[in-house]
Amino acid sequence: MEAAAAKLIGAGLAMIGAIGAGAGIGIVTGGAVQAMARNPEMTGTIQTNMILGIAFAEAVAIYCLVVSLLILFVF
């Protein structure tokens, strides 16, 4: 197999990790929406914490993206 093709495949495979981040963001948002529906007065606090949680979950996907970019452009 050519090295270039292997790079492309590897970059694609690296992005599989984004699945976890997607599921995590979904769970966080679902929980936050339920919480807001039950307790609308707390919407502001819940939103702040939700965005924090999403950011942390998204960080995983970002690492995947970084690895993917590294494979594509650096190695």
């Binding site: 950011a55 998204e58 960080a59 996907a61 970002i62 690492y63 993206l65 970084v66």
Partner: peptide, 10 residues
Amino acid sequence: LSFAFRLFGN
């Protein structure tokens, strides 16, 4: 790292 790559990645 996470700050930098989150914004850049998005």
